[in-house]
C-alpha cells in the first residue's frame, strides 16, 4: 500500500467535489440575487412612491406608479405577498360584504366583471379611497404595503388564467377551492360576466 499516492488521488477527488458544490451554490446565488426579496417592511420612500396612484378622471382604470414597474410588478407574482393579501382579506373583514369571493352585499370578485376595471391600480384605489355605494376607504387603517398586497390577492383570485404563484388553502372549513387550483371562472362556471345589480344603482 502506498498511502501517499492513494491519498493524493482522493484529495484531488474531494477538492473537485467541493469545487463543484461551491460552483453550483454560487451559480444559484447569482440567480437568487435576481429574485424578489421577501420584505416584511417596505422602505418608506418606496412605500411613499407606491402610494402615487394615477387614475383616469372617471376613476376606472389608471396607470400604476413608475416604481411599480421598477420593482418588476411586485404583489402579483410572489406567493408570500399573495398569502399576506389573503390574510388581510379576512383580517379587514372583506368577507362581510364580498363573501368568500363570490360576493354578497358587495359585488363578486370571481366573475371576471370589474366595476372599475381589472387593473391592479384600480383595485388598489378602490381599497385605499373607497367607492360609492358602500365600499369603505382603508387608507387610515392599512399601510400602503398592505393595500397593494390585498389588491394583488383580489386581482389574482378573479383572474382567468392560472398563475404560478398562489396562496394555498387556509386551515378552515372550505367554502371554495383553494386559489392555487385553477382559474376561478372554471371552478364556479361563471364564464359570463354577471349582470350589474339594480340595487347597486346604474353602472358607472
Amino acid at each position: 500500500m502506498m498511502p501517499g499516492k492513494v491519498l493524493n488521488v482522493s484529495v484531488a477527488h474531494l477538492s473537485a467535489t467541493v469545487l463543484l458544490f461551491s460552483l453550483l451554490v454560487g451559480l444559484s446565488a447569482l440567480i437568487g440575487l435576481e429574485r424578489q426579496p421577501r420584505q416584511f417592511r417596505t422602505d418608506p420612500p418606496v412605500a411613499a412612491a407606491l402610494n402615487q396612484l394615477r387614475l383616469m378622471p372617471s376613476g376606472i382604470g389608471g396607470a400604476p406608479p413608475e416604481i411599480y414597474f421598477a420593482l418588476d410588478r411586485p404583489y402579483e407574482a410572489s406567493a408570500y405577498d399573495l398569502s399576506q393579501g389573503k390574510r388581510l382579506y379576512s383580517w379587514f373583514g372583506c368577507a362581510s360584504c364580498h363573501g368568500d369571493g363570490r360576493g354578497g352585499a358587495g359585488p363578486s370578485l370571481l366573475d371576471g366583471w370589474w366595476s372599475y376595471g381589472p387593473s391592479v391600480v384600480a383595485i388598489a384605489a378602490s381599497i385605499r379611497d373607497g367607492r360609492p355605494r358602500g365600499m369603505p376607504a382603508f387608507h387610515n387603517r392599512m399601510t400602503t404595503d398592505q393595500i397593494w398586497q390585498l389588491a394583488g390577492y383580489v386581482k389574482t383570485i378573479g383572474a382567468y388564467s392560472a398563475s404560478l404563484a398562489a396562496p394555498s388553502r387556509n386551515d378552515d372549513k372550505h367554502t371554495r377551492p383553494a386559489e392555487n387550483r385553477a382559474p376561478a371562472a372554471i371552478l364556479f362556471h361563471e364564464d359570463l360576466p354577471a349582470q350589474p345589480r339594480s340595487e347597486q344603482g346604474p353602472p358607472p
Binding site: V25, S28, I31, G32, R35, R38
Partner: peptide
Amino acid sequence: GLLLWISFALDA
C-alpha cells in the same frame, strides 16, 4: 444537502 443549500442561495 445540495437541495437545501441551492434553495438558500436562491433566497427560497
